[in-house]
Design a protein around this nucleic acid. Structure first.
Length: 107
DNA sequence: GAGGTGACGGCGG
DNA sequence: GCCGCCGCCACCT
């Protein structure tokens, strides 16, 4: 089972507080995957059959880069707004404030 | 088995 | 501050 990191990424994503967001790079660094691509890939690989709050995971710019991977490109934004996260032009508003670092799990 | 691609990030120009 | 290139590791063709 070399896909252990998928479960790890999955767990971290599920640990993201509601109304908060994080970045692929932060997760990649936290799990020492070595590449942010692994996080995105893990999400895409895990989406079917798993209820992962992937909509809370954004790129370093705070953009909903993965919205196209959802059932509908708008689903990601709709979900974020449903959690109280304002999204404008496929980008999270107050990204700096809503940003959640996985290292907080250690604290 | 080899090459290309990807839900990204960092660095240079 | 924006645009472009390279690096990263695993998956798909």
């Amino acid at each position: 089972m070399a896909a252990q990191y998928i479960t790890d990424v999955h767990d971290v994503a599920s640990s993201i507080p509601r109304g908060r967001v994080t970045t692929y790079g932060s997760i990649a660094s936290f799990l020492t995957l070595g590449s942010a691509r692994m996080v995105g890939w893990a999400m895409n690989k895990c989406l079917p059959g798993e209820e992962v709050p992937a909509h809370r995971v954004l790129n370093r710019k705070g953009e909903l880069s993965g919205r196209n991977a959802f059932s509908t490109p708008t689903l990601m934004q709709e979900r974020l707004e449903a959690e109280g996260v304002s999204v404008t032009d496929n980008k999270v508003d107050n990204f700096a404030e809503l940003f959640w670092n996985p290292t907080e799990l250690l604290e």
